[in-house]
Structures are given as structure tokens and as C-alpha cells.
Design a binder for these strands. Structure first.
Lengths: 332, 332
DNA sequence: CTGAAAGCGCTTACAG
DNA sequence: CTGAAAGCGCTTACAG
């Protein structure tokens, strides 16, 4: 019972065939007689044999591995996307490796090197941004790269992004149309490209409309930050009556500050819009108007591109859809 | 720029040493002169070389891979545990592979076979239960197994579980002490060992105290189910004033049913206790009294055992701690 | 400290 | 259809 994994040779001996035959029995479309294949299959079953993908990957130089690189994977949006990616990859016959980072660029660097070590066929990056040099090394090592919600383009990669700017504009217009007079924009200190896009969109729309808005961006992109900023905003002498939170987590915090701490009615006294459409946005306590991240589509797009042997440099911009619930006043 | 990964031979040529030297330069503690090592390091840097772990794993017969097998990985508790596990594994020098299942036993079977294919050194199972035969095959292939919150013991595995029964008892006592007269027990149709344990504890305590309780268990273990059961329970002619939900997700649903649909005050009109201590339990809208899953400890225990070369069959029962917030009335 | 050689478990031309 | 042989990229005794 020592660690003595079953090998193709064992199966060959047991079945009375060559190990070449065993190999072929496990290769779809290889030329083996049905009889031999059956014999091998029986032997494999009896011995509990599984092809060693490490060895197979080595010789075919395709490991079947795909690295998923992300920070804060316990977060609702992140885990939802990861789930889609993992399931899609598995369904496509690939095996996801999970590399948790701390969103620093150095952390992505390590993650990518890690991925190279395992000769992953690709890496899907959800957090942080690798520099060009690193990307080149990956490419040179035959690795495909897909960047999700990252901003800068990199040669040879697939970049999937949303129309964040547009969402910011829509958020502004929606709040105005709801009759909100004092608008606020809530963000975190993270400063990732997608958050920046939403902020810019909202700002531009406000400028174009000639209205001034309050802005807050401190701390992590979390519920806690939303709670703090919300409390701060609402206790001012000129509290906003319409808030766009760049993230649902932030929005939930703002909503709780409004309701639990100030006894405000939503949307009667305050309208709030979020972004991501995490599960909690649909919970009755929040019933948050938000923008849906098309996680399924993101995953599908990534996997399609990876399945295409000659996927060239590409940027895919996915449309973002507003989910209307009950946190924004309906114009009379 | 074809997929021509850099090899140790390339580095050797570039550095003007043998490929044995290259290998040694990347093996901690190997006997190489500092000079050679430096030369190799420089060459590797210039070429963007990373040791091929597939090949190294093959020859050392230790892949460095650990499979994480779980269903519903986008769920708060699950993703929190996965995050801890992934980070811990990475810190311990292991690489996590993520296999999403659908919690059916057949799905775990496939997952495990998948793991064997990659010669993972271990598999951590969070969902589903492999049968004995399968466990044996894993063991025979030199794979370690850790079962989290699974019930039955399997030879050669590490089993980590919580004192679910005790939690059920504590929930009952807490609700009684809070003065609740009509108690209900809310669960799902999942029937996993941990849920069953909590149910049993609550039931036993009730029987011992001679009080009858209402029970509901339908649907998935989700917010939605909690909302439905809560609505159903609260619209009866004899609504409960104290509810133990076997899971926080369920509890959040019940809480929302009570507040949003029946205008009930919590804990004034209704006391609720959950289990898991997911992030949302701490959000102000819920402020849920619950039992904390020691995810950090679970991960640490698993990784410790995996790091111990001769980890024998073991069952570790972790204590579960009640987190007191505001969803249970404080006895006068 | 260093390198030539054997071997990890597989696959894939190459003959038959 | 089948098997003996070479080779994927690495590591590790084995000599020197």
C-alpha cells in the first residue's frame, strides 16, 4: 500500500498486451482493435489505472491545465465568475489551477511564473496586471493569456471587458430621471480599470449635464467601506438623495447605513444603484438596482478563444445590462 | 514565437554548463558552486526559463498538486473555505487544482479520477462522498484524502468535522433562554451529514425538554428556500417566535420574509439563529446570531496533515463558536 | 563540484 | 492492427 501508482506497464502485463496498446486504448481515434481496447479497459478497471496526465502532457506538450489567477476569491462577484470559469473549463476538458493573489503586481508575477512551471496552456487573469515583459515570457513559453476587466491591451492576449463607461452614464441618467437632486458617487481606493471606467462615465455625464456631484473613494471595495462612506455622506448637512456605488458590495453597505443607521426609506428618501448583480443584490432587504456582470458570457468567451488554436490578439467588449429592482424611485 | 517553451538544455547551452548543473541550480541544497548557480540563474532569467514541474513531478513522483473538490463554489461559505485552502496550499508550496462538482456521488467519482490523472498528492473533498472502493483506488495511487464535514470515516483519510450536534443543542437552549415559546427548525432537502447533525442536536434537545417543534426541510440550501419556508411558517395560524436555521443562507431568507413580508421586528417578534457565519450574517440588515465555521482552522488542519509525510487515519473535531449579534432577544 | 547516463510514464513515428 | 524503439524535460545515482 506504499505510494506505488498503477502504470501503463502494469495494465499491459495484466492484459497481456504491449504498453503501446494500452496507450492507444486511451487515445480516442487510435488504431486498436475493439477487442484489445476492451481487454485493456478491463485490466485498467481492475487495477484502478488512470492515464498519467503529467507524462502525457509532457510528451504531447499540452498539459490540459489552465491557471485561474485572482485576488479576493471569497467575494461574491469573484467567486461567481470563478465558478463559471471552473465549470466551463472542466466541461471543455481542461483542468483549472487556482492561484490566489493579493492583487499586487508582484503577486501576479509570481502567479504567472507558477503557471509557467506547470506549463499551463493558458492563464485567465482576474486581478492585477502583468507587465509586457512578463506577457512576452508567457507567450514565448506557449501560454495563452486572457485578461478579464483589465484595461491595457497586451499583444497576443484576449481581453474581455465591459462597457463600464456606458454603465456610469446610464447610472447618472437613471438617477436624474428618478428625480434625484443631490447626487453622489461612491467608490473605493482600489482604482482598478473597471472601477475607473464607471467613475469616468458618471462624472462625464454629470459634467455634460452641468450638475456637481459629491465623490467618495476610500478603503477596500467592500461592504464595510460602503457602510462607512454611506454613514459619512448621510450625516452631512447636504446628504445626497441619489447614489451610484461602483460595486454592489459598496451599495449594500450604503443601503444599510441609510436604513439601519438613519432610518431612511429606499427609494422614497434615497435612490441607490450598484454594479455586479451579486446574489445579495436580489435579496429582499436590498432589492438593488444594478448592472449585471455577464459572468456566464465572460467565461464562455474565454473558453471559446482558448479552444480556438489560433486565437489572435483580441478585445471583446461585452454589453452590460441594467437590472431594475426597487432601490430607485420610479418617476411619477 | 511558436509554442517552444524554454528548456533546461537551452539554459545549459546559454550558460555553458551541463543540463545536470541547471537541474542542480534549481534544487535547494544540491551541490553546486555558487558561481555555477549564479551563471545558471542569469541564463534562466535571460531566457525566461521556469523548471517544468510536469517533468519534475514525473521523476520525483510528487506533482505538487492538490485537488480541491467542491460543489456550489460560488456560495459564501464554500468560497470562503476554498479561499483559505487555496492560500494555505500555495503558501505551503502546493498548487491547488479546482474541480467543481454537482454534489452527486457520481460527480465526486469523476472528480477523483480526474485528480488521479494528474497524480495530485491529495484531494480535499468538500462536497459529496466517495465510496470505499474509490477511496482505496486513490490510496493505492498514493493519494491522500481529506474529507471536510463528511460523516462516514474512511481508512487512510483525515476527516475534519464540527460539533454540529452540539450546535443544534446550543441553538435550542439559546432560543428557549430568550423566552421563545414556539420553536421551528428550518433546513433544506440536501440532507448532508453536517446539516443532519445540527438537526439531530436541536431535535434531541427539544425532546429532552419535552417541547414540540415545527420542522421544515425542502429545496436547496439557499436564500430562496429560506424566504419560502419563512413565508410559509410565518403565515400559519401558529407562527413560531424562535427559529433555528441550519445555515446562514436559509436564515437570511427567513429574516427577509419576517421583515419585508410580515413587517416583523427582529428580535422583538422573532428570534433567529443561523450557522456558518458568512459575511452577510454580519451585515447590519441581518446582524445574525450564528455559529462560526472555523474556516481558517479547517484549512490549517488539512494542510498540516498533508505536510506530515505519515499522516495516518484521523478524525479531527473542531469546536464551533456561537457569534452573538442581534437576531436573538436578550432575556430580560 | 561536475557531467554522462539511466530512467520517470507516457506517446508516436517506424516497421511489420 | 500491433510492438520495439526513440524521445518529451527533468532528476539522481554513479563516476570522476
Amino acid at each position: 500500500m506504499k505510494r506505488a501508482p498503477v502504470t501503463a506497464q502494469d495494465v499491459a502485463d495484466y492484459a497481456g498486451v504491449s504498453r503501446t496498446a494500452v496507450s492507444r486504448a486511451f487515445t480516442p481515434g487510435a488504431s486498436v482493435s475493439a477487442e484489445t481496447r476492451a481487454k485493456v479497459q478491463r485490466a485498467a478497471e481492475a487495477l484502478g489505472y488512470q492515464v498519467n496526465h503529467l507524462a502525457r502532457g509532457l510528451i504531447r506538450s499540452e498539459s490540459g491545465l489552465v491557471a485561474l489567477i485572482a485576488a479576493e476569491i471569497e467575494t461574491p462577484y469573484r467567486s461567481a465568475l470563478l465558478s463559471q470559469l471552473a465549470q466551463g473549463l472542466l466541461a471543455a476538458g481542461k483542468t483549472p489551477i487556482l492561484i490566489a493573489t493579493d492583487r499586487s503586481d508582484d503577486s501576479v508575477r509570481q502567479a504567472l511564473q507558477h503557471a509557467i512551471s506547470y506549463r499551463t496552456e493558458a492563464a485567465v487573469i482576474l486581478s492585477g496586471m502583468p507587465d509586457s515583459a512578463l506577457c512576452d515570457i508567457c507567450l514565448r513559453n506557449g501560454m495563452r493569456l486572457v485578461l478579464v476587466n483589465r484595461d491595457e491591451a497586451r499583444k497576443g492576449t484576449l481581453q474581455i471587458r465591459l462597457d463600464d463607461h456606458e454603465a456610469g452614464v446610464t447610472a447618472f441618467n437613471t438617477l436624474r430621471r428618478a428625480g434625484c437632486a443631490a447626487l453622489a458617487l461612491v467608490s473605493s481606493a482600489a482604482g482598478t480599470p473597471s472601477l475607473a471606467g464607471r467613475i469616468a462615465g458618471f462624472r462625464h455625464a454629470a459634467e455634460a449635464a452641468g450638475v456637481t456631484i459629491q465623490e467618495r473613494s476610500t478603503g477596500a471595495t467592500s461592504y464595510q467601506t460602503g457602510l462607512e462612506i454611506g454613514t459619512d455622506l448621510l450625516s452631512s448637512t447636504t446628504p445626497p438623495d441619489g447614489i451610484f456605488c461602483v460595486t454592489d458590495l459598496l451599495a449594500c453597505g450604503v443601503l444599510d447605513a441609510a436604513r439601519c443607521r438613519f432610518g431612511l426609506g429606499v427609494p422614497a428618501d434615497l435612490s441607490v444603484i450598484g454594479f455586479d448583480d451579486i446574489a445579495q443584490a436580489g435579496w429582499e432587504s436590498y432589492a438593488l438596482n444594478t448592472f449585471a456582470q455577464p459572468t456566464g458570457e465572460i467565461a464562455a468567451t474565454a473558453i471559446d478563444w482558448l479552444s480556438d488554436p489560433d486565437g489572435e490578439t483580441r478585445v471583446v467588449q461585452l454589453p452590460v445590462r441594467m437590472v431594475w429592482r426597487k432601490s430607485v424611485r420610479v418617476p411619477a
